[in-house]
């Protein structure tokens, strides 16, 4: 039982990281309808930015702040420069453009930082002794990841639900024409959506690097779990992304714990299976709207 609880907590912690990466994917999908397959590589790029900032002697939190600001700018710039050109032409075009972005950030990181992995954490916030309640413990790394994820989610919730700016962002995602009618600068909102999504992705990346290290390929597989989370929750539902992320994290951990070693590791296969299952049974996910209500 303790083993189960232990793995459950570990699953929730890593799931919270998938959740915020999925949240970034959903924010971008809602703003321009682009499923951003480059999300992972953009996050990876931001992680290297943070690494560079720190290697000049900057502290961890200032470096994170700088990284988030640069990610915000980077995402907005990508929307303004590239995504806007193909918007509304076809799904195929926007998917191909997403792959183009994948390659560009992959290649830029390789060009700037080279192929060797970098050491990146765990930083003091993520290292230390475990905290135990009864027989069940949570490691400092998982605790740190969980705390950062919760704070990130809460801040996003406040932004979207309690500010005028967040209201306008939601409005733009719902109905562009109506947004223009009430005088919302729609283009700026779309860029902001991409910027936010990219910044949230960068946070997920920094968390991932605490346990997985920093490498051009670090996010390859993390993205698969985040995509599974987003599909499970519903691609256009931020709440779904969070719930989906937690479920994926727990399922992944439990599957890893209870699969006999004679079978081998199956975490990626599990993520793939979840995607296929959801698409078969409920293609719009748990929280996704099957039909858009249009008034």
């Amino acid at each position: 039982m303790d083993l189960f609880l232990q793995q459950l907590i570990g699953g929730i912690a890593s799931g919270s990281m998938f959740a915020i990466l999925a949240l970034g994917i959903v924010l971008i999908y809602r703003s321009t309808g682009t499923l951003n397959f480059a999300q992972g590589q953009m996050a990876m790029f931001s992680m290297f930015v943070a690494w560079s900032a720190m290697s000049t002697g900057m502290g961890f939190w200032p470096a994170v702040l700088l990284t988030l600001l640069s990610a915000l700018a980077m995402g907005a710039l990508v929307e303004w420069l590239i995504v806007r050109r193909v918007e509304g032409t076809s799904d195929l075009n926007s998917l191909i453009v997403a792959m183009g972005l994948f390659l560009i950030f992959d290649g830029l990181a390789l060009y700037i930082w080279g192929p060797l992995p970098k050491s990146f954490g765990p930083f003091s916030f993520f290292s230390g002794g475990a905290s135990c309640v009864g027989g069940v413990c949570i490691g400092r790394l998982n605790l740190g990841i969980l705390v950062v994820s919760i704070v990130t989610t809460a801040l996003l919730y406040l932004l979207f639900q309690c500010t005028r700016f967040g209201l306008a962002l939601r409005a733009t995602a719902l109905n562009r024409l109506a947004s223009r009618l009430v005088g919302i600068p729609v283009g700026r909102m779309l860029s902001t959506g991409w910027g936010l999504g990219t910044a949230v992705g960068a946070i997920a990346g920094i968390l991932a690097a605490q346990s997985l290290g920093l490498d051009i390929r670090t996010m390859f597989f993390v993205v698969l779990f985040a995509l599974a989370a987003a599909v499970l929750g519903g691609l256009d539902s931020p709440v779904g992304a969070v719930v989906g992320g937690l479920i994926i994290g727990v399922v992944k951990n439990l599957a890893g714990t209870y699969t006999p070693s004679s079978v081998g590791s199956i975490d990626l296969a599990v993520a793939f299976a979840v995607i296929v299952l959801v698409l078969m049974v409920r293609p719009n996910g748990i929280f996704g709207r099957p039909v858009r209500m249009r008034v």
């Binding site: 005028r164 209201l167 939601r170 719902l174 109905n175 109506a178 009430v182 249009r294 008034v295």
Partner: peptide, 21 residues
């Protein structure tokens, strides 16, 4: 406009708030 172009999933108050954007 024709078709009214409301933010259907938002509340009446939110629609009015957006009107005052």
């Amino acid at each position: 406009l024709e078709g009214r172009q409301l933010f259907g999933e938002m509340t009446v108050l939110e629609n009015l708030r957006l009107g005052a954007y």
